[in-house]
């Protein structure tokens, strides 16, 4: 055991690990928000509720149907993503011609309704969801102990983020998405079904939130409020990274998770607020965010 700046190394690495875990969730969630904001110009305040729904789909599949974690990783994004597609088709679509504020009010209201419904049904005490058998236990890395499941969450979210980035930056579908983000009218005038692209993009962003929810279920208890608490921080991450920047949201997500972890070690009193302090500073110096493009 050694110390760094007077802090025991195990404590430091432990907090850094925790920071990376939180950063993993920040990254996936802010990535989904960025993709949605880019194309739909809507700040999806329902994102936290959709993350919570992902965790609940995992819990319900296990409890009522006996479907385990690995299938839930696939099932929850599909189910919650389909719910997102429905929301976009039935409600959100009507607001594209109106001020941003309406989209914000609608998605915020939806979040309250969804969370309220789940609270009525399941209470707020939280439901347990076990770590899948394959990922119990952990590794002794010499300088610290790494629980397997936490290592998996970090790797999985990195893969999901990189895969999403790869699809957007290098595929034809990604080119449609980038082009439609810039000028939907022209893309449509080339014969592309932009309304469908918008629906699928929203469904995909929502699916990402649900996937994060499943990843979170074994770490945090499954709870109707789990998204509401997290999403406030994620919005700060998005603002710091720059609205609509794909890579920016991923890097900022992981980076801020680490910063938060470090703060817990060196100045724990500030750990709950450090991200918001950074947000204020970034807004003062670079209002478009660290990776944002000023239009």
């Amino acid at each position: 055991m050694f110390t760094i700046f007077g802090v025991p190394s195990a404590a430091l690495f432990g907090q850094l690990l925790l920071g990376l875990i939180n950063g993993s969730f920040y990254a996936i969630l802010s990535l989904g928000l960025a993709v949605i904001f880019g194309l739909l110009n809507i700040i999806n305040f329902t994102h936290g509720a959709q993350y919570m729904m992902g965790a609940f789909v995992a819990w319900m599949s296990l409890t009522y149907l006996g479907i385990g974690y690995w299938w839930a990783l696939l099932l929850a994004p599909i189910v919650v993503g389909a719910f997102g597609v429905l929301l976009e088709r039935v409600l959100i679509r009507r607001l594209y011609d109106l001020d941003h504020l309406y989209g914000l009010l609608l998605t915020f209201g939806l979040a309250l309704i969804i969370q309220g419904l789940f609270r009525n049904q399941y209470g707020v005490s939280g439901l347990p969801y076990g770590i899948p058998r394959e990922l119990t236990g952990g590794q002794n890395l010499g300088f610290m102990f790494l629980p397997n499941y936490r290592g998996w969450v970090i790797v999985a979210s990195l893969i999901v983020c990189l895969f999403t980035w790869f699809v957007i930056e290098t595929t034809k579908l990604g080119a449609y998405l980038r082009a439609a983000t810039e000028n939907p009218t022209l893309v449509q005038a080339f014969g592309v079904n932009v309304p469908l692209l918008i629906t699928l993009t929203y469904g995909f962003g929502v699916g990402l939130a649900a996937l994060a929810g499943v990843l979170a279920a074994p770490i945090y208890s499954v709870n109707p409020n789990m998204g509401a608490d997290l999403i406030i921080v994620v919005f700060a991450v998005v603002v710091i990274g720059g609205m609509g920047s794909i890579l920016g949201s991923v890097i900022t997500g992981f980076g801020l998770g680490l910063v938060e972890g470090l703060t817990k070690v060196f100045y724990p009193e500030a750990s709950a607020t450090v991200i918001f302090v950074i947000m204020v500073l970034v807004l003062l110096v670079k209002p478009a965010g660290l990776f944002g493009r000023t239009a």
């Binding site: 080119a175 000028n183 009218t185 022209l186 449509q188 080339f190 014969g191 592309v192 932009v194």
Partner: peptide
């Protein structure tokens, strides 16, 4: 018709502002 369906009849459009995409 919606513009995407008009385009699909076989019409190509070059806008006055050219409409080149910066992110492509």
């Amino acid at each position: 018709l919606a513009s995407r369906n008009i385009a699909r009849l076989g019409i190509g459009y070059v806008p006055e502002e050219r409409g080149i995409f910066a992110s492509l």
